[in-house]
């Protein structure tokens, strides 16, 4: 029985890192980190990578709390509405789900105005992939096919409300084409379907497909990043092909509204030191995590910008999607 309770406790919380003695200016010694997804997912990978280093820099203990459900909305509602704003509670915030959740569902009531963005840590850029035996050799082939027969070229995404779904919508707008969007439950099923030729293409992310691209099972047509990626130097960006499209899936940290500004500054400074640490950089590279450090107000601005953009897109297609 005692073991049972111990196991249940272990399931609830996982202690990471150790409390250092140095004074970093952070007001708390223990920080609860909420994650809106199950243990072992992408958010957890970020937590397990960053928090041991951050704990040392900041001199605090991090305690992970997994609150899966409603694509993170349960955790973020708690962050916005209930979490104490004394620096003792923060949450991993995933974009675009952080904003698309409440844009798409009126019953989700938190907004980004009720949280304090701390910093973005990683971004997995979007990418368009096709099977290695696909007739589409280039992104232009793909666009031409979509123009020639509107609504018939099937393109997978990781689910309605996810980054790839909105990337497809943004692309449709930018290129003036109509795709047949097929939502899957996660990136894996989406690119697998493309690889097996079940769908014509998949809009997915670089980190999850890179091994398959490297082995020649998938062909990358374009990346949705600002610049060409060092690991895929031959793959053009959508921007250089003439489509204004930079998108991806990002994960960072945010606190509740009115988070103490000294704590926020202390944490951002500590994160900056972690990002500069070569050991951390190597660990991130080993896991194929693409560091995209966007601190403080810039992160807040990025979220605001996304919110406005997605609100506009959703308003224009909402009736069409939900009338089905």
């Amino acid at each position: 029985m005692r073991l049972t309770i111990a196991a249940a406790l272990a399931a609830t919380t996982t202690l990471t890192g150790t409390a250092g003695a140095q004074d970093s200016g952070y007001s708390q010694t223990e920080v609860e980190v909420m994650q809106g997804f199950k243990a072992g997912g992408g958010s957890d990978a970020l937590a397990q990578l960053v928090q041991p280093y951050l704990a040392e820099e900041l001199g605090v203990n991090f305690v992970n709390e997994y609150i899966p459900g409603a694509t993170g909305a349960i955790a973020w509602t708690r962050l916005a509405k209930q979490a104490p704003n004394d620096g003792s509670t923060i949450s991993i915030t995933n974009t675009p789900m952080l904003t698309t959740n409440y844009i798409m569902n009126p019953s989700i009531t938190y907004t980004i105005d009720e949280i304090t963005p701390i910093a973005n840590i990683v971004t997995d850029p979007g990418i368009a992939v096709v099977s290695s035996d696909s007739p589409f050799q280039t992104f232009e082939d793909f666009v031409e096919a979509a123009e020639a027969a509107p609504g018939t070229v099937t393109v997978g995404n990781s689910g309605v409300g996810g980054d790839d779904y909105f990337t497809s919508l943004q692309f449709e707008k930018a290129a003036g084409v109509q795709l047949q969007k097929v939502p899957f439950q996660g990136d894996g099923p989406s690119w697998t379907a493309a690889m097996g030729g079940k769908i014509d293409a998949s809009f997915t992310n670089v980190g999850v497909t890179y091994p398959q691209i490297k082995d020649g099972n998938l062909r990358a047509l374009a990346v949705f990043a600002e610049e060409r990626l060092p690991e895929l130097p031959d793959v053009p960006t959508a921007t250089e092909l003439g489509y204004e499209l930079v998108a991806g899936s990002s994960r960072g940290y945010s606190g509740p509204g009115d988070f103490p500004s000294e704590d926020r500054d202390a944490m951002i400074a500590a994160m900056q030191r972690v990002m500069d640490n070569p050991d951390f950089q190597k660990a991130a590279a080993d896991q194929a995590l693409n560091i995209d450090f966007i601190p403080g107000d810039e992160y807040a601005a990025m979220l605001k910008e996304q919110e406005a953009e997605y609100q506009e897109i959703w308003a224009s297609i909402k009736d069409e999607v939900q009338a089905k």
Partner: peptide, 20 residues
């Protein structure tokens, strides 16, 4: 739970816990 293709919550009665 949420409909896969439209994102519409079905039979959730506004409970976030039933979205999934």
């Amino acid at each position: 739970g949420m409909d896969l293709t439209t994102g519409t919550p079905r039979f959730t009665f506004g409970y976030l816990n039933l979205f999934g």
